[in-house]
Computed example of a mutant assay.
Amino acid sequence: MPPKKGPTPEEVEDIKTSLGALCGDVAAVRAQQELLLGLLEEVKQLRLQNAQKDRRIMDLERRVDELEQYTRTNDVVISGIKIKPRSYARAVAGNVGEPSDEENRSVEQQVASFLQSKGIEMDLEHVEACHPLPRRSDRPPAVIMRFVNRKNKVALLKQGRKLKGTDVFINEHLTRKNADIARKARQLKKNGKIQHTWVTNCKIFIKLNGTPEEAKVLIVRNMEDLDKYN
């Protein structure tokens, strides 16, 4: 058998050229891989930073809501009492600014008169401020009443049961967030998902269904805390 002939010089050069081109392609692929890995790491870090910022924003929103709720600690919202509107003279004059002290005192007196007619004791000396909220429906506007201290507010809330059978209600002055939580908790109770719900010192409580061991009382601070009971 005749010996095999080796590649010609031209073929060797072609092979070298091909290998050089292949090495260049491999190097380019590696460079692309490193670039992609770098971009993936950058995306990972950005997602981590965004998650941290989201948690920070949520924490700040929670603190703002807690501070706002704290400023309402001595307040109650009384809804359903028909308050006489501001004076005709003030309306004709087009004065749409803050109500005068005289008008505010009139609101206090109207509220106190109605509550006292239902056997509810209240001393206006303990009232720091009282004014109606903007009307949002055909119902009488709700009234915000702020007491000098919390014990006066609690004393009035405890007498709220005397309003049973009327369309008048006395509630704590909750922030929008807490009011939404309380509303959803009441809906869960109505649907039989929880046993009971109530508000004390501007905190929303729920009592779970089940045996005495299972029927725990929980404080609800976020809407997500109620999602598990839907």
Rank of each mutant, 00 (worst) to 15 (best):
R56I: 01
T71W: 04
D75L: 02
Q69A: 15
A93F: 05
K53Q: 10
V64Y: 08
A93S: 15
D75P: 04
R86G: 08
L40Q: 09
T73D: 08
E41F: 01
N50K: 12
Q69M: 13
L60S: 08
A89I: 10
S79I: 03
I57W: 00
L39P: 01
Q52K: 12
T73C: 01
I57D: 02
L46M: 07
Y70V: 01
V92L: 15
K84E: 06
I83P: 08
G94A: 12
T71Y: 09
M58F: 03
G97F: 13
D75K: 05
N74L: 01
T71C: 07
S79E: 15
I78V: 15
D54C: 08
Q49P: 01
K82V: 14
N95K: 15
K84G: 00
V92K: 13
L36W: 03
L60R: 14
I78M: 04
D75E: 07
D75F: 06
I57E: 06
E66H: 06
G97I: 11
V96Q: 09
L48T: 06
R90I: 13
R63D: 07
K53G: 00
Y70M: 11
S79N: 14
L35H: 09
I81N: 02
L40D: 09
P85Y: 10
I57N: 01
E66Q: 14
V92W: 06
R86Q: 09
V76A: 04
T71P: 00
E42H: 05
L37N: 15
V96P: 01
N74E: 01
R62N: 13
L36C: 05
I81A: 09
R90E: 15
V76Q: 04
D54H: 10
